[in-house]
Amino acid sequence: MVEVLQQILNGLTIGGVYVLIALGLTTVFGILGISHFAHGSISMFGGYVVFYLVTQQGMPLAFACLAAMGAGFVLGIAVERLAYRPVRDASPINAFIVALGLTMIAEGANLQLFGADQIVIPTNLQSVFRIGALTLTELRFYIILLTAGLILAMTLYIQRSKTGYAIRALAQNRNAAILMGVNVSRITMLVFAMSSMLGVAAAVMIGALFAIAPGVGEGLAIKGFSVLILGGLGSIPGAIVGGLILGVTEALAAGFLSSAYKDVIAFLVMIIVLLVRPQGLLGKHS
């Protein structure tokens, strides 16, 4: 029993990171119908920037994160303007291919600028909490707290604020929202900026807890989309539930079934959901 609880605890941390990535993807998809596949790699760029600012410039971690989120904000807007907007009216496949191209560019740029070696963002959180037979590192504890805080803030913002209302209106019925005076290009910018900031936050967590290396961003984007398929496209609660389920499934699969095939098992879960509920666990019928 302790082992099961420990595995769930192990999976929650990475699951939380999946949620942050998936939230960014799901809002972009909801508003623009774009699969922003480059999200993972561009987020990792933010993570690299934090690493650079902290280790080379001696900046405190919190400031570095703010600076990187700013960079993510600008990049997000630039990507939308330069790459996605020109193909907005073409077939959605074109937007996806542009997204693939952006991913390659971002991965290549990260490789060129920051090298192939893995990097770890230094923190001085070294202690470990032990509750009975359960263990949780201080770092993981804070990351879980921070993730929960970000998810809560994001949900409240979307549900309660006026801008959030406009975002939801746009996602539900684009034309009606435009007729009601919603400023599409402002909301689009905002959504890209918001998702990029969440992405950078996720990248910093990955970088502090594990490592940032070539391919990590791409892998996260794939996991993020798996979460969306699992939870339901464009659904915010779906992204939260799906992310946690994916994280915990992976940990349980590695712990009790097979560590070599844990990703395959997590993927099979997604396929089963797809066969039984093609719209995802919390998605609505279209």
């Binding site: 969306l228 398929i229 395959v264 797809l274």
Partner: peptide, 28 residues
């Protein structure tokens, strides 16, 4: 069969995941 249950971008993602599965199985 399962991949084609979703459309557009998500078909792409599911097939990509299948490519990864094929790769993992070939490796392991």
């Amino acid at each position: 069969y399962p991949s084609l249950r979703v459309k557009g971008h998500y078909f792409a993602i599911v097939t990509l995941a299948f490519n990864m599965v094929i790769f993992i199985v070939l490796m392991n």
